[in-house]
């Protein structure tokens, strides 16, 4: 594994203007979907991104690929800041940066055959490529993702969800990218199919030294596939740590609450577990709490959390946490 960071995200912010009040002439407020996120990603590494709906995990993934414009901050891909590049430059980089979406059927054009869908990136980037070469590459990629060559002329509706997701992965892989953003790639799949697709992603990663940003709300899947994990809440990083460090000793009260809430398929463990937990729902991202954004649902919040925004501090090697109380959170763990 190389040590030079492939991808460097620095203080990335994505704010969406939202009209508040007034039908035509109301004021705009910034919805801070991603608010000051920084991380590095190495070649061949998987970064898991977890958090609840509305925490900004999908927006983060899209901002990395410049599918949504960044409000401020830097996305450096191999030393080149994508936020400063023009369209053509970004298009060149997108050869190496790909995405797999959550809904396998909705992300495939229903009027294109599986073969055309997988070949489309080749047509875009190598218009001069001969038909026979393109077909050979498509067949080769289909075999790699576990689709039979005979399926090349079928339409998306003729495939099951798991197979559609394989087509989506083949389309992302055909240009031999270096990084794939996987936005909830297995959430829509059945349990028995989910494991197959996760295995496929891990195989491809090994074979092509791929980096993955694996966005998911499923903490168990993330534990399985990730090397490092980023925990988001209301657009901010709560905790960023090596996988085992995070799962064995989560420092942030939010991470602890998330983990406590995940049901374990073992009746004895699940029933012995102290439940709950967090009360209420996450606050509106249009009107986030002052100080620490998590304080309104946190059992350990005090006056300081209301006043002061916690910074990301290093708790141990490779384990960063943004909580004023991180030194005491392990004892008070839920």
């Amino acid at each position: 594994m190389m040590t030079q960071p492939f991808l460097q995200i620095r203080d990335l912010k994505v704010h969406f203007p939202v009209r508040t009040g007034g039908l035509f002439f109301g004021d705009y407020t910034a919805l801070k979907a991603v608010d000051g996120i920084s991380f590095d990603l190495k070649a061949g590494e998987t970064l898991g991104v977890v958090g609840e709906s509305g925490c900004g995990k999908s927006t983060l993934g899209r901002a990395v690929l410049q599918l949504v414009p960044a409000t401020s901050g830097a996305v450096s891909w191999l030393g080149c800041d994508l936020t400063q590049q023009d369209k053509n430059e970004i298009k060149k980089c997108r050869q190496e940066l790909q995405i797999v979406f959550q809904d396998p059927l909705a992300s495939l054009d229903p009027r294109m055959t599986a073969g055309d869908i997988i070949a489309e990136p080749l047509r875009n980037y190598f218009p001069a490529m001969s038909n026979s070469e393109r077909t050979a590459k498509v067949q080769d990629m289909m075999a790699k993702v576990g689709l039979l060559p005979g399926m090349v002329n079928r339409y998306p509706h003729e495939f099951s969800g798991g197979q559609c997701q394989r087509i989506g992965i083949a389309r992302a892989m055909i240009l031999k990218p270096k990084l794939i953003v996987c936005d909830e790639p297995v959430s829509a799949l059945d349990v028995s199919i989910r494991a197959q697709v996760i295995n496929l992603l891990m195989d491809l990663q090994k074979d092509f030294n791929l980096s993955l940003i694996f966005i998911s709300h499923d903490l168990a899947v993330v534990r399985h596939i990730s090397h490092r994990v980023l925990v988001l809440y209301l657009g901010k990083v709560m905790e960023l740590a090596e996988r085992e460090s995070l799962y064995r000793a989560p420092r942030h009260p939010y991470t602890q609450a998330l983990m406590a809430a995940v049901p374990i398929p073992d009746p004895d463990k699940e029933r012995a577990k102290k439940r709950v937990i967090l009360t209420g729902d996450p606050p509106s991202p249009l009107n986030p709490p002052s100080g620490c954004v998590f304080r309104t649902r946190c059992g350990q919040a005090n006056e300081r959390c209301v006043q002061e925004i916690p910074l990301l501090e290093t708790a141990s090697v490779g384990h960063e946490v943004s909580c004023h109380h991180w030194r005491n959170t392990l004892e008070n763990r839920i």
């Binding site: 349990v191 168990a220 399985h224």
Partner: peptide, 12 residues
């Protein structure tokens, strides 16, 4: 084939 939060195994 159900991934478990309390399972530290990686790999296939």
């Amino acid at each position: 084939c159900t991934p478990r939060l309390d399972d530290a195994r990686q790999g296939i």
